[in-house]
């Protein structure tokens, strides 16, 4: 702890080390633990101030659990989450309260993340109410300002969420997340419930807010093309583990992990010009296996197009394959 505090400004805002979130599987009459699902299994990354880190993966890869564990909506079962130098992984709910002002989550489905029985003004003001900040008039002023900030007319204050379109609802959710001036937003598929023309506008709003307010984003998504455009760095996740982690440009120009290649290959391109970024077509096998019974060795080997005997026996480690670029594959060891 002591050596981490000497030079704060150079530290990343968030440093996640070997984060684990295991869920027990219970069975039998006595609810005995018979196994566990390793939803997040030894994930490490850093996120700088004003930076966007995207975590990409398919359903069931643990990306949402990762995001919510970082936001301490779940309690980690191992590893540490250093936020601004403080390990928030082990804090109690009471100790977390000040931290909650700094980390906010924007959810995938705005219809579900906004209480249908509350007016927009109460939803956006809720963080101030909970933390007992400001007078009534100040809260009202702040709500108006926030709505303006997310490009909503201020008279929307009096509406209920169901009276808004999906894109407008998501703007309300963003306004609520901004109420207390957080430094980190966990964006959990913030646009995947929206139409593309609406998604574009929400994304540009998020980018504008990041520039103006110096926010850091941990963005959880399944859309690789989107991350290419908005993330500084990208982590590719599969069955609870990071398979590859790289700056956006190098991930797309020079993907190292076979799983990343498969994801890239599977993207249906819209414009001819995109083809240049796609690897040769790879025939993809199977689906994500049951996370409670992951394959031996490299968890991706049953679906991998470059699998060799060794893959089912050895579990590869993340190794450096380029500047700030790590990947997990047995083939990397050959070349080193």
């Amino acid at each position: 702890m002591s050596d981490a505090t000497d030079d704060r400004t150079d530290d990343p805002l968030l440093r996640v080390q070997n984060l684990e979130k295991y869920y027990p599987i219970t069975g039998g009459l006595l609810k005995k633990k018979v196994g566990e699902v390793k939803a997040v299994d030894g994930v490490s990354f850093e996120l700088g101030r004003g930076e966007t880190l995207a975590i990409v993966g398919e359903s069931g890869c643990g990306k949402t659990t990762l995001g919510k564990t970082v936001a301490r909506l779940h309690e980690p079962t191992g590893g540490s989450i250093l936020f601004d130098g403080q390990d928030i992984g082990t804090l109690s709910e009471r100790e977390l309260k000040p931290v909650r002002r700094e980390i906010q989550v924007v959810y995938q489905d705005p219809t579900s993340s906004l209480n249908p029985r509350k007016r927009i003004k109460d939803i956006v003001a809720e963080p101030m109410t909970v933390h007992d900040i400001g007078t009534k008039a100040q809260r009202r002023e702040r709500v108006v300002e926030l709505l303006r900030r997310v490009d909503l007319p201020e008279d929307f204050r009096y509406r209920y969420p169901s009276e808004l379109s999906g894109g407008q609802q998501q703007r309300v959710a963003i306004a609520r997340a901004l109420t207390l001036n957080p430094s980190l937003l966990v964006l959990d598929e913030p646009t995947s419930a929206l139409d593309v023309s609406v998604q574009a506008k929400v994304i540009s709003l998020l980018e504008e807010l990041q520039d103006d307010l110096g926010l850091s984003y941990l963005m959880i998504t399944h859309d690789l093309s989107l991350t290419k455009n908005i993330a500084d760095r990208i982590g590719v996740m599969y069955l609870g583990k990071l398979m590859e982690k790289a700056p956006a440009a190098s991930l797309f120009d020079d993907p190292q992990n076979p799983y990343t290649e498969q994801l890239l290959s599977a993207i249906p391109i819209v414009e001819e010009s995109e083809a240049a970024y796609k690897p040769d077509r790879i025939s993809i096998q199977g689906e994500t296996p049951d996370p409670s019974d992951p394959p031996s060795g490299c968890s991706f080997h049953p679906r991998c197009h470059r699998t060799v005997d060794e893959c089912s026996r050895t579990e590869p480690e993340l190794v450096d394959v380029g500047p700030d670029h790590t990947s997990r594959c047995v083939h990397h060891d050959d070349t080193d």
Partner: peptide, 13 residues
């Protein structure tokens, strides 16, 4: 529902 989790994330009791 996610608004319950969202409220917890804000720090509500």
């Amino acid at each position: 529902e996610q608004f319950v989790e969202a409220s917890r994330g804000i720090g509500a009791s």
